[in-house]
Nucleic acid binder design. Structure first.
Lengths: 226, 226
DNA sequence: TTCCGACATAATATCGACAAAATTATGTTT
DNA sequence: AAACATAATTTTGTCGATATTATGTCGGAA
């Protein structure tokens, strides 16, 4: 008898497929603008059309998938303009959210950050030897950023932040194709952000977060525009 | 041959059902927390389960519907805390969006506002004699607020604003149950907002918008908390 | 009476099949 | 050979049926 919410592999396929599809899009396994044929996905995720279409509908509302009248679904397209817009929005939203979070955050919130950061340091490197993005790293990275805002009192701020983060993450796939040796210390940035946030440094924390975003975005933009 | 996107009553049922469901939730025809049984909806919207579940999935992502593990869907619950949070967020988002819009707005944007406002003035009154909310007014009201931000350069700001607006609108249904004679000039507020926005008044426009939201919210909150 | 468990009922979530539409391939005409 | 019309194929979107899970009811024991 299951102690936790039991995931009946075949029973709640909708949620399961939603999560897998989302992960594959964010990781770049399903590249931007790729046609999402039901038949192909049916095979890939071992389920029927119905749960697939439900998952795709949800992802459409999250701007990760686009749907055309009678022409099915495809992974949402990317562009440098879109990325610039995303980063601009994330700065606005995350700075607001971070301020509120640092005011309200309690011990449990601090512990969540410590834990998430620890897991991120223990995760495999983002890009594996075969130039594919590591799912564990991606998940840990997302969890770390969500943990920073976990104590944010506004459901909507958390939600918007999370959505923008996910939309941004899939741009990182580009960095795995050109094997650029990281000209920056990603782990160090995470550590610095954590320290500033835990210290409730209302000046440094938002500044570091914004720089963190800009660094990633600029790297991607250089590759995209080239 | 259709000039515009043709809605083939039975062909793209998914989109059609999505819009109708959304409209019914916003209008309050489907009240908060109401169970959404597939069988009942199947009958109400004259279609089968599949397009329904797709629409419900999309609405779940928009926070208008909630879904529980194996227990189906229901209309998202409301609470005074949620409304306060919504208003707080709308002020943040809409003020940012409005500033950008007033900087970038062109002639077509201005004409869109004029037209939407005209239609709103010509719409039937919000609440009809039988204490039900008028669909035409609701649609016109939404179109007016969207028109104000139509020239906003950020897709995400427009999207968030629109989503928060929709979530707020369904709180207005409460005002139709207690027949409170409007102690304020709703039409006048809309007119004043339009004038300030068209005049590119960067001081008054955001102030009026915020007051507009507060007025509606306070009216609802008084009724909710009573 | 109140609580617990087995049974009956209802609802959900998924599947496979079908009909409508779009896409590709083919053939015909200029 | 290019362009258009037509036919074949693929793909989408919807339906009805079914198995699984949740809910409600009834009877019996503490």
């Amino acid at each position: 008898m299951p102690l936790q919410t039991h995931s009946n592999d075949k029973l709640d396929a909708a949620l399961s497929v939603y999560e897998k599809l989302k992960a594959d899009i964010i990781a770049g396994a399903l590249p931007p603008d790729q046609k999402l044929k039901i038949e192909v996905l049916r095979d890939r995720y071992a389920c029927s059309g119905s749960p697939l279409r439900e998952a795709l509908s949800r992802l459409t509302a999250e701007s990760l998938v686009s749907q055309e009248n009678q022409r099915g679904f495809r992974v949402a397209a990317i562009s440098s303009d879109d990325l610039r817009e995303l980063i601009r929005m994330r700065k606005l939203i995350d700075v607001m959210a971070l301020n509120e979070t640092m005011q309200q955050g309690d011990a449990a919130w601090e512990e969540g950050i410590i834990l998430a950061h620890h897991r991120l340091t223990r995760a495999p490197s983002e890009i594996s030897r075969d130039n594919r993005r590591d799912m564990t790293w991606i998940r840990s990275h997302g969890e770390f950023h969500r943990a920073l805002l976990a104590a944010c009192p506004s459901y909507y701020l958390r939600n918007f932040s999370s959505q923008l983060f996910d939309s941004c993450e899939r741009y990182r796939e580009i960095l795995s194709r050109v094997d650029v040796l990281y000209p920056r210390d990603l782990a160090g940035e995470h550590k610095a952000i954590m320290d500033a946030v835990l210290a409730r440094d209302f000046d440094r924390a938002p500044k570091l977060i914004c720089e963190h975003m800009d660094n990633s975005a600029n790297l991607v933009l250089r590759t995209l525009d080239a």
